[in-house]
């Protein structure tokens, strides 16, 4: 799990172009949207594409994104559960 979280940190920094952040700056248990990293709806779409492209996981119902992308850890748990 920790290895996947580290990998996700690097991927998120690259995909969302968080140019002034290092993987160590991202708390895996802090909310990704709003108060935590401060991501927005466009970032949510980028993360959906990331899941599909890099992990082969397609989110059928966008409403599920709220739970899946709550923190980096919930995202990693979802990937672990659903990756084929």
């Amino acid at each position: 799990m920790e290895e996947l979280i580290q990998k996700l940190k690097e991927e998120i920094i690259e995909v969302l172009n968080l140019e002034e952040m290092e993987p160590g700056d991202i708390d895996p248990d802090a909310p990704l949207f709003g108060e935590g990293l401060g991501l927005d709806s466009i970032d949510a779409l980028e993360l959906i594409v990331l899941l599909e492209k890099n992990y082969g996981i397609k989110i059928e119902d966008p409403k599920d994104g709220r739970k899946i992308f709550f923190t980096l850890r919930t995202m990693a748990e979802y990937i672990t559960e659903h990756q084929k």
């Binding site: 995909v15 466009i42 779409l45 980028e46 594409v49 599909e52 492209k53």
Partner: peptide, 13 residues
């Protein structure tokens, strides 16, 4: 590159 899949919104908008 992605065969018309996995298109993200940022560069499009």
């Amino acid at each position: 590159d992605n065969d018309e899949k996995f298109l993200t919104p940022t560069s499009f908008i």
